[in-house]
Computed example of a mutant assay.
Amino acid sequence: MHTPRPHLLFSFGTLLDERVQATLFGGPVPSRPAALAGHTTTPLRITDATVIATSGLDVHLTLVRQHGAEVKGAALRLTDADLEAADAYEVDDYVRRRVRLTSGETTWAYLDARPLRPASRIVIVGDSIAYGRCDPRGGWAGRLAAAHIAENETGHRLFNLAIPGSTLTDVSEQTPALLGPRLPDTLLVAAGINDAALPGPRTRTDRQLTDALASLADTAMRHNARLVVAGPSWIDETRTPADDGLHFTRDRALALRATLRTWCADHDVDHLDLWEPLRDRPDLLTDGLHPTPEGHEALYRHIVTLAHQTSRRARC
């Protein structure tokens, strides 16, 4: 009886080894040559004894972004069971995400679990909080830009394209035309609080939110960029303004947060939850919605921690 092999997985390292395939999959699996543009590799030291025993190596390779580079490997055709075995084999420093091969096919690949660490060219889209309103230093995005570029003045870029007042639907419509000349490898979507407004003509339903996220995922994939969704941040409902008939409630903000988390988990997309840094800290908000400079600093530090946190099972 034929066993379906519905999954395509790009590999350039130990998963191509015959011994590893014999251990994980029971023998060799169908494959063909493949390449992944916009990436290069860097060593990753492994401490998990089971992984070392299977591969015979305590240093594996991990993908990092580099414009103009290319990693050659193979596309493996896997069954459901094979993919589960590969997931179990990979240490916590890796997560399985969708990428686009040079052939144009989309496939799985194991990427750095810390979504901003391997990034080179980051584009941020969102609303006034991502834009940096109420902070002369450009908010959390301005701080992230300064640190990212300082790390590699030659190769690193960050473009903040956030527009105050935008909803996720607005962002999904605005973004495609903005990405081409910026050559992004990472699209950081700051899901702002405008999507939590009630009542009014711009109130968003879960279907509108998920449609916007799906559109942004398609846009990112067309550029072979990694999609990262951040937000929302905590609000002080007692002080939120009622601008243009919009009213912001904590329950709606929490519902937005739940929708983002669920969608990202269901679609294997990275989510940076920004709720906790400002939670129950009205002193870090200027008007119940927009962070003060100190609030933006707290968000920035939280984002860096989430995007660069160290795994429990392996360490670079």
Rank of each mutant, 00 (worst) to 15 (best):
D185V: 07
T106S: 14
T186Y: 01
H148C: 06
G200Y: 15
T210P: 01
G180L: 13
T210N: 01
H223M: 08
P201Y: 14
V123T: 10
L187D: 02
L188S: 00
T102M: 08
G165H: 10
S128H: 13
I149S: 01
R143G: 11
A141H: 01
A217G: 09
L178A: 13
R96P: 05
A197E: 06
Q208T: 03
F159C: 11
D135P: 01
A146I: 07
E173N: 12
D211I: 02
V95L: 14
A162T: 05
P136Q: 00
G132K: 03
L144A: 04
D112F: 07
R137Y: 12
S128R: 14
D127A: 14
W108T: 05
T203W: 13
R117C: 09
V91H: 00
H223W: 13
W140P: 00
T210D: 03
T106K: 10
L179Y: 02
D218F: 09
R157K: 06
P164M: 11
P164N: 12
D93M: 13
T106L: 08
C134T: 14
L144R: 07
Y94L: 06
F159M: 09
P199L: 10
G132M: 09
V123R: 04
P184M: 02
A177T: 07
R204D: 04
T106V: 15
R202P: 02
L216V: 01
L168T: 13
H223G: 04
L198Y: 13
R204Q: 15
N160Y: 02
G132W: 01
R202E: 12
D206G: 07
A113F: 00
N194W: 02
C134M: 12
L161F: 07
T167G: 11
Q208D: 02
V171M: 09
D218Q: 15
G165S: 13
A119I: 06
A88T: 14
L161D: 02
L144C: 04
G165P: 08
A217R: 15
L209Q: 02
L179K: 04
A220K: 08
F159P: 03
G165N: 12
T167M: 11
L188H: 05
A85L: 09
L101T: 00
R137N: 13
I129V: 15
L161C: 06
A214T: 12
T169H: 14
R207H: 12
V125Y: 06
Y110E: 05
E90L: 09
P181S: 11
A141T: 03
I122S: 04
D92E: 15
D195F: 00
R157G: 04
L178C: 09
S103V: 09
S103A: 12
S103H: 07
H156M: 07
